[in-house]
Design a protein around this nucleic acid. Sequence first.
DNA 1: GTCTATAGACCGATAGAC
DNA 2: GTCTATCGGTCTATAGAC
Lengths: 218, 218
Amino acid sequence: MHTSVAPRVSFKAQMLKVREDAIIQAVNRLLAEKGFDAMTVDEVAARVGIAKASLYKHFPSKEDLAAAAMVRVMRQAQAYCAGLSDDDPPLENLRAVTRWTMQLKLAGDMPSLPSQNSSLRSALMANREYMDGLIEVSDRLGAWIEAAQADGSISNRLPAIAVLYTLYARACDPVLEFLKMGGQYQDDEIIELVMSTCFDGLNARSQAPDETPARAVH
Amino acid sequence: MHTSVAPRVSFKAQMLKVREDAIIQAVNRLLAEKGFDAMTVDEVAARVGIAKASLYKHFPSKEDLAAAAMVRVMRQAQAYCAGLSDDDPPLENLRAVTRWTMQLKLAGDMPSLPSQNSSLRSALMANREYMDGLIEVSDRLGAWIEAAQADGSISNRLPAIAVLYTLYARACDPVLEFLKMGGQYQDDEIIELVMSTCFDGLNARSQAPDETPARAVH
DNA sequence: GTCTATAGACCGATAGAC
DNA sequence: GTCTATCGGTCTATAGAC
């Protein structure tokens, strides 16, 4: 197929893409708000302002809707990682990605899927783009983790895979929402608290007092 | 209430209790395996080997079934806490409870509820026994946390509530299942890994080499 | 014979699919 | 806008204990 000759991106195709983006955006929000099971397809259609049948023109099933949202966020993660420099200390890059992830979640833009739903799992694992993105991100983070362990900034007693999972888990950390529900901390304070528990742990440690402390609001 | 005079606990009542226990046990497992939404009442009945209508003789709704399972695990937690001594270092008690929680989860006995389901939330918050248990456990852990911060074993830069939430979150930490799915670690190794990330954090730290290290199996 | 608990059909609503 | 499957919840007829 020669697309080079005619720059005809065809208005229709453009419209389709715009609408698809709107759908995915709506799905993303709903997944972040209520999760996959509680989200209904009718709700998505209503949110986008189109007929339910139209949804099925774009996505063959509810699982595919969720997968599309996951692909979207995975692409954003790839883009964010790509914006970080391998010249910076690997620990800083890992911290940056972790912070970015938690910001997304606190902003209500992190779709959350039940980890045990099987139909969803298979839909996701069958999605080439998602899996490719996941692998690329994991490779990148994995390289940073190993570099950070080599330069002594991340504990080398932990297997890299455990570190990777621990970072991924921040995307669905209930501590974030609990602290937010409590209402006595700002979003950025919450993030710094969880950053601290994640990287420094709960134990007290001898630590230079000039390092940025986790901000405890009374 | 004088139970000493007449040991008439009535066979029937005993049977009822035994069956109720069987129901709650089944619900507990199903909640741990598939979560609240994916669990169907028919499934519970089938698992117990009784008719669905009989279930409703004991519990008026699916939410109450889940609540009963939560009450059960909360009682177990209370019992476990009660078995710990306030004479022991508070940090050790906190570590013990955290380890116990994760063991329960890895064994497939930790019921997990969607944090965003509202009907479930209200059923749970309306459940006196559950709330009492939750408060008692939180008070106990809270006291240990403050004591540990006072004796310098837990960072006093973290608000106690953030520490508490962080410990609670171990009950639904996806890192546990991810590592288990990977299949290259034993349950107790997984627990020690997550204990380490939780209390020591990901960062490398100067630490006496004789302290028990997180066991990294290549 | 009466009473309780059970089994299994049944209903209504909801939500996914087309 | 319709179809159908599923699921939470109910109803009724029966079996068995006393």
